[in-house]
Design a protein around this nucleic acid. Structure first.
Lengths: 335, 335
DNA sequence: CTGAAAGCGCTTACAG
DNA sequence: CTGAAAGCGCTTACAG
């Protein structure tokens, strides 16, 4: 591999390496003629500054880290896409990591990224333990928390208004006449789960319907766990409606419903979580709450770049709450 | 940010920086006692080698580039997930780029990655023009081509056996008695499109059914284009079956079918392209051809790492052809 | 087995 | 406005 360096350009242009650098970074006055010579030489040699060397010297890397908890579901793809797009426009590169819902792996990822001198990090945290993020907090790397927040960490945050979204979904079901409303959720160790559940509980309370623990089932995203949880919920509690608070679980639910030969919405009304193009292609089209992943990604990236430009802690941190809205389709009927 | 350097460790351990480095890279004999002192000091200071400095010195970065043409569809997510996983296990990091089906952007991405000293690249190419990859070929960076090949480029390749897959899908329809089999495809400028079409044509020929151009429609992935193409195909040519060779187009097709109030498979039989969990949740479940994205990603990453270990061109290049198999569900009936 | 030194490609005070 | 020099953190011949 032939790497063309500032030295090469300098030699050809008959100037010093420092001058070449100055031409390319353009923050210091350079004589017009010198600039032209340098630029010409650079073009001729097809010179491009080496990010690695630049990074070592300037302690930055033109690189943004992104840690997502999973790459299974469609949910994050939109977000990643939007983030990648902004990062590309800004001339940065994206280092993508998956923590696979594993706090240890998350920690390892954070460490690696720090030692890669990333200029900023977008993090959808898995661990709920503040100390997991100590190393990160001790650097001055700006980071924004995506979709989940952590008690005790002060930084920019963007997330969906899960609580309100779930409140509205639940209320919608109640207004249709449902009282036995089952819930399918990921385990309550995940921070946002509590919030979603709160929306559900508040809605019930406001409508004067007692909260019944048996109607709420937790499951990992593993298909056999999920299907078992669904089947138990459906058969033992006989809810008239189910609110599935995770897209992976919704899939399992739909499978079980089919297997049990139940008809939607006649036998059971269903609300899903997460917008997907597929929702409207299902039969019946699936009513669901969700947020705009594209918007979330774009805003997250922009927040981060603003922080990178201004330096961390210059301004108070902000929390952006994205609407989680209900798209009514045809998977619920009145009871 | 406090960066702990070899200097710091060396000072604490009472040795030279070189020795610290030797302990960490372990390819040179070091006295057991020295090693212990160094390791102790390193742990105490929480030292981790700086990738950037390492990269500059050793002209490598422990970094793998991945360029995908799009992040819209689910198709690539599985592949990305698998690749990320292997890369993580190997202690590397993944730099993800989307070319957005734009040859210019692809070129820019390749350039950037080269100048980031990536150790290897997995590329799903958009451009069909060999010269787009000249810069890459001139480096000694190993790369594997994913899912699409390019005439005139010698390297490791992994792709689905699209031609055979499409042959079988078409044949399946013919055997069900269909003769007017419509095709929905992305524009034939994309390399793999030709191959898929060939499978379709060969199947028709082998079955003695004349090929009719009007039955084959091309469309970009933009929804309004796609829906128009679908509607034209359905109304003007009145096919009894449609083979949609792209998952994005399948979505549009399903929408149009619904809009036209056609019933699957009674009015029209449909075969989709690409495996998705959703396929079996549709009503009726969608028969589709597709490959195992997880497998593709894993193999691609492993091929690349093998090449990185052995150096480019040590061994002849290999092309791995993955099966593209038909999963029969319920969206086709005999005619 | 280990230290001192040079150098990866770049940027930036410091002189002039 | 520009050159010479130092240094970012690391590794690796070169001596010893």
């Amino acid at each position: 591999m032939f790497i063309v360096t500032v030295q090469d350009v300098a030699r050809l242009a008959g100037v010093s390496p420092g001058t070449v650098s100055r031409v390319f970074n353009g923050n210091v006055p350079v004589r017009e003629q010198t600039k032209r010579k340098v630029l010409e030489a650079a073009t001729q040699l097809n010179y491009r500054p080496n990010f690695i060397a630049q990074g070592l010297r300037m302690k930055k890397s033109q690189t943004i880290g992104l840690i997502v908890p999973e790459l299974h579901s469609e949910g994050f793809v939109q977000v990643i896409k939007a983030i990648e797009s902004v990062i590309y426009e800004q001339g940065y590169s994206l280092i993508l990591c998956s923590s696979d819902e594993d706090p240890e792996r998350e920690k390892a990822n954070i460490q690696t990224l720090i030692h890669r001198n990333i200029d900023g990090l977008i993090l959808c945290p898995v661990s709920t333990d503040v100390t997991s993020f100590d190393e990160l907090s001790h650097t001055d790397i700006p980071f924004v928390l995506l979709d989940r927040m952590i008690d005790g960490i002060e930084t920019d945050i963007i997330k969906g208004n899960d609580q309100l979204g779930c409140y509205e979904a639940t209320k919608y079901l109640v207004e249709l006449g449902h009282e036995k409303i089952g819930v399918l959720s990921k385990p309550p160790t995940i921070p946002f789960v509590v919030e979603r559940l709160l929306g559900y509980q508040n809605a019930l309370e406001d409508c004067g319907i007692p909260y019944h623990t048996g109607l709420v089932r937790f499951s990992s995203h593993f298909s056999h766990h999920a299907m078992q949880a669904c089947e138990e919920l459906l058969t033992s509690e006989k809810p008239t409606a189910i609110f599935s608070m995770s897209s992976t679980l919704t899939m399992s639910l739909l499978k079980v419903v089919k297997k049990l030969n139940l008809s939607i919405p006649d036998d059971i009304s269903i609300i899903g979580y997460g917008e997907s193009e597929w929702n409207s292609l299902l039969n019946p089209p699936l009513t669901a709450v969700g947020l705009n992943g594209n918007q979330m990604g774009t805003i997250a990236a922009n927040m981060l770049f603003r922080r990178i430009r201004e330096g961390r802690e210059k301004r108070g941190f902000e929390t952006v709450l994205l609407p989680v809205s209900l798209s009514v389709r045809s998977s619920c009927r009145s009871h």
